[in-house]
Write a protein that binds this DNA or RNA. Structure first.
Lengths: 340, 340
DNA sequence: CGAAAAAACCAAAGCGCTTTGGAAGGCTCT
DNA sequence: AGAGCCTTCCAAAGCGCTTTGGTTTTTTCG
């Protein structure tokens, strides 16, 4: 069933039927009702290919998915997707993932924009001076950055959490509890979020005249194993830290294992705070010693970004507004005063 | 730059240019070279919207993504996606995720097929008599099922792992080691994979005249917390199992925690085998007691399914061939003979 | 009542590609 | 030389929608 058939059936022109269906004003309400009714009854659905050819609108939002044998998609992605998908569903938006060589995502961004394959895109895991952000903003397609870049000479729209503030608070608390040797087990420090977190920790320490010791900061892919290795290395040093801030729950698993392997305890020998993106399948309160966290739902971020993208597509949102969400600091059993 | 301009520039018809570019035989090789060369030089890229309107081909594969506030996307999904994306990239395929109400995915399948939004789809987490499989196969779009349904009165193409065999082997090993009271901590038993695993365990036990005791099988969403709860419940029973087979590494984390909380040890008091889908961020060999596993890379499955979908799209694969991959049984420190 | 304005509708021209149905020209072969 | 066959190219007809630029009918109002 296509427009032609439907309009013939109603003894109307395609023009009128199309307008009736798309809510244009120049059609009699009575006629519109007839049309809508008939469309529903016959299960008419406009062919999206035709529509997009005519309008350029696709009803899809795009994401360039870095791939490669050595590339691991972040497990956070799936939670983000839950939020994004949930919003997108309610707005009849689809998401298209365009796989790209992790080292050359720009070609793919160019392609999906040139081809008009999507109405908007989002960018995640931005780095300082991220070329994707620069590219996409010159390409002129609506977009939102999840996170922030740095050192770009123009503004752009983003939704980020206050990583610096969160880790500042966490470190400040630890310092207040008397800890003097802190360590940071961070994610990949080529990404802005990790840089901000480190900055937060350093700022808190500096406020008390402390510093993040040489060798007291690790920056690694966020796996359990890396958490373990980092923690072991830190704890076996002569000036081992008495408190650790950790960038992910998964790494924290490794930290806990290392502590146990070394015959130490949390929080007796080591206070631990980790960042929690709120996974349904791994909860900080369920660690054998409940884990203190800086908490921010990545799922909510996904939904918010979908919402903003939708707004931008329909022209409701413009400009380069960035928003920064506060992060909760949730104290549980894994922190205590520094050992004597 | 569109076809019209390009052909005008070359003083050729659109027909010829189109054919030259698409590899049709009825064009002089010399001409073809000229065309291809000019196209490249001017960066001509056929507009996909136009092409799909004309041909019906989209260059995209579809997946209906169950969403909803209470719906958690399986963290396995992201690994699967890595494999799928990696293959898709090399074949210029994009993936479109259509979010749907988890309880009504069929409407969405209908839509994406009716709209010709994608060339093929895949279905994951199938259940017995899965209506999606039935629907999609009547809809006549190329598809592959990741996993298997059961009790359908027709054949369909799938790629699955030998869940029954894997858990049969695991249980058989445990029985051989003298265990008499086994338990199974399974995933959602509305899904076929879980049913198969339970079947495998039961079959192995039956071979030695044993049974899976009442209350010795749990079926829950695969979270750390559920693993913990299930293990506690099992181990606090009077006839506590001496060995557990567990459907996921994440649940196994919870099991390990429960064992520790109860002051027991692995493998002294409890032997444990879990299924490992091979995550880069959580490895069984890194458990404090290295975990024995049934292992099968879900990432490889993603790549394979992309490959088969591509083959089906281009007509290279037909029919309802199902393939079942064997699963490795990897013995590590978490299993030993039954306690006296 | 008649002119101007508003309302309701329509025919046809795109959007950019593929594909059908020829046509022109050059070869082969008898 | 002419029939018949390739080879190579082209004009034009879709694909199914939106939108432009009217036209016709109805309403408004001095």
């Amino acid at each position: 069933m296509n427009l032609k058939q439907l309009s013939h059936m109603l003894a109307l022109s395609q023009t009128t039927v199309s307008r009736a269906l798309n809510g244009y004003p120049e059609v009699n309400e009575e006629t519109r009702r007839r049309v809508i009714d008939a469309a529903k009854r016959h299960g008419y659905r406009p062919n999206p290919s035709a529509r997009r050819l005519a309008t350029g609108k696709t009803g899809m939002i795009g994401y360039v998915l870095p791939t490669g044998a050595a590339v691991d998609i972040d497990p956070h992605f799936v939670e983000f997707l839950s939020g994004l998908g949930d919003y997108a569903r309610s707005h009849e938006l689809d998401l298209v993932l365009s796989p790209a060589d992790a080292d050359d995502q720009e070609t793919t961004y160019r392609r999906i924009v040139a081809n008009r394959q999507v109405d908007a895109v989002y960018i995640s895991s931005p780095r300082p001076a991220d070329r994707r952000v620069a590219l996409v903003s010159t390409l002129g397609i609506p977009f939102i950055v999840h996170g922030r870049s740095e050192g770009l000479d123009f503004d752009y729209p983003f939704t980020d959490i206050d990583n610096e503030g969160a880790f500042h608070e966490a470190a400040r608390l630890l310092v207040q509890l008397g800890h003097r040797r802190l360590a940071l087990i961070n994610g990949d420090d080529r990404e802005t979020f990790a840089i901000h977190r480190e900055r937060g920790v350093r700022r808190a320490l500096a406020a008390s005249g402390l510093v993040l010791g040489e060798g007291h900061v690790c920056s690694l892919a966020m796996t359990e194993e890396n958490g373990y290795r980092a923690a072991r290395r830190l704890l076996e040093q002569s000036d081992a830290p008495t408190a650790i801030a950790c960038s992910s729950l998964i790494m924290a698993l490794g930290v806990v294992r290392a502590v146990r392997d070394l015959g130490l305890t949390i929080p007796g020998d080591l206070s631990l705070i980790a960042h929690d993106d709120v996974f349904p399948w791994l909860k900080p309160e369920n660690f054998s010693v409940p884990l203190s966290t800086t908490r921010s739902s990545i799922r909510l971020a996904g939904a918010r970004i979908a919402e903003r993208l939708a707004a931008r597509i329909s022209g409701l949102e413009e400009g380069a507004r960035g928003e920064v969400w506060p992060v909760d600091l949730v104290i549980r059993g894994s922190v205590t005063g520094a050992p004597a």
